[in-house]
Design a protein around this nucleic acid. Structure first.
Length: 847
RNA sequence: GCCGGUGUGGCGGAAUGGUAGACGCAGGGGAUUCAAAAUCCCCCGUUGGUAACAACGUGUGGGUUCGAGUCCCUCCACCGGCACCA
């Protein structure tokens, strides 16, 4: 009897698929097409167990769709631009290009033994000039179509290294290398006009039936449509060029409770004041310290500066309000100015206490409540329950209706206008970095900003750069910057900013439909393969990547690069959980964190006995070193074991904490399947007493596993396969029946453990490759039992059970239930208060 | 701070509002063996009880329902995102 040796069978079948071209995407009009895509990886150089889980899931879907008769597209590529390559260049001196392509080669080699059904003939990396050149072509088309523009935007500025920092590089408000206090500084940048699509991107979410509700909700909140009032406060003493302050509020019903106006330190008025008043300049400079993230801004201590300016309340010319500059007002949102209503907003309440401002309630929980508040009273948004001091002295109720009424009242009285606003901001794509797609424009002293001519694309990154000083090496490259203006032919300079790597990943799915084309896409191929039928990736991409891709698909349609049917590029989305692991940490002499790999930690200690701090499970990341290397598991047990284990261990949408235990058990199970199959292969054909039972169990399993795969219930499907394996092992069916059952088992396992499945299939005389054998179909007649056990509850607690024919009518079940011994005893002669019979489910006797 | 999610035995987890704990791991017992490995069989939420059985039990506290892990509200803990990490 042969033994299960993964190391022998796995390369053999990988070779067989390769030479048969099993997974080469081929257009075939006789079949439905299916495009399955997993979010492509950043080539860190090391495949970790999270990748294995992610790509195995996609592989299961891909193999299942192939077996159910689809023309399959299942491509793979590399999201290859980004900061890590530049960081490596700075720390180890390796060139980002060599680093990246080296990592790609290494990771591709790690992918090979997993037996994934990728069509490698379509592979590309986003750092291939053939790819980013087409991205530059898209940029030029978008620019021409008015989808890209230039404006100033804030960045994190390291005043010591004189360089722009990513949010990740700002730690507690300080630069990660210099340790200097980071400042917010404005820079001219390129922007995609994604805000033009706010409403479209929001309403189109409704059509995404096969997207997780939580992702649609997150996107919806991110876009953040709000209805509010925009109006202006008149300034009492008008500083030069300013006679009013425009504000936007979603709570116009609280206007009568206003007690101050606050403007952003970046508001034009604040900037003007700072030019004349050193105290304002000092305050504003203080406000500009720290990083640019919304989190940092929101968590910062709320501070204000009284400008001494006063404004007039629009409904009472005698009512003057002070104007503060406040660090919590953001120039990017609304108008960069707000009015504060301390009575009904906790942040404003705290601010009012701090600066001695009045707290004027316009609503109270009840008509007789104390109007002196101890904390802000936030009235319910949707219900109309509170007592309200409304406009012009009358009382009204709160809620959305009141907000609408407030807008109407203000409009009628010539105070502002109701407007719809979106939280979504335009997408800044400029990055002051080397390792990205160069922005193909030229700055000409005579013509200004001039797009590069398409025939000059790709604008390739120069190789001869150095990373010995901070900043973008393109800025100090001796010759690359110099060029001729495409418009006037005079001397000019290239833009040295490169594109945000989110641009790279916003259209790669479209590029896979024609990866070698000399245009970004080919309409005919895009029309055939798009959309992605199933997209799979981490929930951490639920907002930005997916929103940007949805925008890009629309922009590509507008510029003639995608058909209209592809403007929502992902038909179905599955967000898989992350593989997490504990983080092991020590501190160096200057108290900086030093991370350690799990393999270097034993019982909470390093090899030299140093105790490590254990941080609870977190997303695996290279920088935190909490990664698990799948190579060792594959070497010891084989790919099928690794694949089965990552799928069986927990539901795919949930995070899973990796533990080494369990791989051994999986390996034993696969060996058991192999052993059972070889025993069955040796049997003579014929019938046996267990034929009917085995057939029934087989059809049930086909049904359940098929449903499990289609609904991403991989762990539950695997549980059914365990159960069926035991059934088969114990069956006394004849050889013919058992061979069929074993072949079917192999087919059902084939998406998860493709190599073992092929081996078993061949052993049992299956024809051709199991990968392309038609998927088994369950006979519906064999899926139901003749008799079922019905639990009987008394007052909702299970007390007994009865066996009934599956189609027994309700009244017959009632009679049978009332005749049950436990029920008779509980009733004690009395009639039940209520008798609930749910056919096929349960009986509940209420006493 | 804001937005979204998750919480069930020793562990991973299962469960269209209908028998909570499927399946797997770990653990215990047994068979086989000279012995072991491998394999096969049985037990396995907590407490009480010889047992039958009973009570309790799905993060907390409430609610809706004949019936709640599942629906609603409150709170707690953890995870993800917050626009320059990818």
């Amino acid at each position: 009897m042969s033994r299960y040796t993964a190391a022998e069978i796995e390369p053999k079948w990988q070779q067989a698929w390769e030479s048969a071209g099993t997974f080469t995407a081929t257009r075939d009009d006789a079949k439905p097409k299916y495009y399955v895509l997993e979010m492509f990886p950043y080539p860190s150089g090391n495949l970790h167990i999270g990748h294995v889980r992610n790509y195995t899931m996609g592989d299961v879907i891909a193999r299942y769709k192939l077996a159910t008769g689809h023309a399959l597209l299942h491509p793979m590529g590399w999201d290859a631009f980004g900061m890590p390559a530049e960081n490596a260049a700075m720390t180890t001196g390796v060139h980002p290009k060599d680093y990246t392509y080296g990592n790609i080669a290494q990771m591709k080699a790690q992918f090979a033994p997993l037996g994934l059904s990728f069509d490698w003939s379509r592979e590309f990396a986003t750092c291939d000039p053939e790819y980013y050149g087409q991205q530059q072509a898209l940029f030029l088309d978008f620019l021409r179509a008015g989808l890209i523009y230039r404006k100033k935007a804030v960045v994190n500025w390291d005043p010591v290294d004189m360089t722009v920092l990513a949010n990740e590089q700002v730690i507690d408000g300080k630069g990660w290398r210099s340790g200097a206090d980071v400042e917010r500084r404005e820079l001219g940048q390129w922007f995609f006009k994604i805000s033009d699509y706010s409403d479209e991107l929001l309403t189109a979410l409704d059509g995404l039936d096969n997207w997780p509700a939580k992702v649609k909700l997150m996107q919806s909140n991110w876009i953040g449509r709000s209805r509010g009032l925009q109006f202006a406060f008149s300034l009492v003493d008008e500083p030069e060029g300013h006679d009013r302050i425009e504000v936007y509020t979603t709570r116009p019903d609280t206007m009568m409770g206003a007690s101050f106006v606050a403007i952003s330190p970046d508001h034009p008025l604040a900037r003007q004041l700072e030019d004349h008043d050193p105290a304002v300049a000092t305050f504003n400079a203080e406000c500009r310290k720290g990083g640019t993230t919304e989190e940092a801004l929101e968590k910062a201590e709320k501070r204000g500066f009284d400008t001494g300016l006063r404004v007039i309340h629009p409904f009472d010319t005698a009512w003057e309000l002070p104007v503060f500059i406040a660090n919590f007002v953001l120039m990017d949102y609304g108008t960069g100015a707000i009015f504060g209503c301390p009575a009904h907003d906790q942040r404003d309440f705290d601010f009012a206490i701090r600066y001695g401002l009045p707290i004027i309630p316009t609503f109270l929980p009840t008509a007789d409540a104390d109007p002196v508040l101890a904390e802000a009273y936030v009235p319910p948004k949707t219900e109309t329950v509170a007592y309200v001091k409304g406009f012009a002295g009358e009382k009204m109720q709160t809620g959305n209706a009141a907000i609408d009424a407030a807008i109407a009242f203000c409009e009628a009285n010539g105070v502002g206008a109701g407007v719809t606003r979106y939280r979504l901001r335009d997408w800044g794509l400029s990055r002051q970095r080397y390792w990205g797609c160069p922005i193909p424009v030229i700055h000409c002293p005579d013509c200004g900003v001039v797009p590069e001519a398409k025939e000059n694309l790709p604008v390739e990154l120069p190789y001869d750069v150095t990373f010995d000083v901070p900043g973008n090496p393109l800025d100090r490259h001796p010759t690359w910057r110099d060029c001729t203006c495409p418009a006037c032919g005079g001397k000019a300079q290239r833009e040295t900013d490169t594109m945000d790597t989110f641009v790279d990943s916003s259209w790669y799915f479209a590029r896979f439909t024609a990866p070698r084309a000399t245009t970004p896409t080919v309409m005919d191929d895009a029309a055939y393969w798009m959309n992605v039928d199933q997209y799979i990736g981490g929930v951490e991409h639920a907002i930005l990547h997916l929103l940007y891709s949805r925008f890009f698909a629309r922009a590509m349609h507008v510029t003639g690069h995608l058909p209209e049917m592809a403007i929502e590029p992902f038909n179905a989305l599955f967000t898989q959980g992350m593989v997490t692991h504990e983080i092991y940490l020590t501190r160096d002499a200057s108290d900086r964190p030093v991370y350690h790999l799990p393999q270097d930690v034993q019982d909470g200690k390093l090899a030299d006995g140093t105790a490590v701090t254990v941080i609870p499970s977190a997303k695996m990341s290279k920088s935190k070193k909490n990664v698990v290397d799948p190579d060792a598991i594959i070497a010891q047990y084989g790919a099928d074991t690794a694949r089965w284990f990552v799928l069986s261990d927990s539901p795919p949408e949930r995070d899973v904490e990796w533990t080494a235990a369990g791989a051994e058990a999986t390996s034993k199970h696969l060996a058991r399947v192999h052993r059972i199959a070889s025993d069955i292969a040796a049997m003579d054909d014929g019938t046996g007493p267990g034929d009917a039972d085995l057939t029934r169990a087989m059809h049930k399993t086909v049904h359940e596993v098929t449903l499990g795969i289609e609904s991403f219930g991989f762990n539950a499907a695997i549980a059914k396969l365990y159960a069926f394996t035991s059934t088969l092992a114990k069956s006394d069916a004849g050889g013919a029946g058992r061979k069929l059952a074993a072949r079917t088992l192999a087919q059902l396992m084939s998406p998860m453990t493709p190599h073992l499945a092929e081996e078993v299939w061949a052993m049992l005389g299956g024809s051709g490759l199991i990968a392309t054998a038609p998927w088994p179909v369950a006979n519906p007649a064999l899926l139901t039992e003749d008799t079922i056990t019905l639990p009987i509850q008394i007052n909702g607690k299970r007390r007994s059970e009865i066996a009934v024919p599956v189609d027994m009518p309700k009244d017959a079940i009632e009679k049978l239930a009332l005749a049950d011994e436990a029920v008779i005893k509980a009733l004690n002669g009395a009639a039940p208060k209520k008798l609930i019979v749910v056919p096929g489910r349960i009986v509940n006797v209420v006493i």
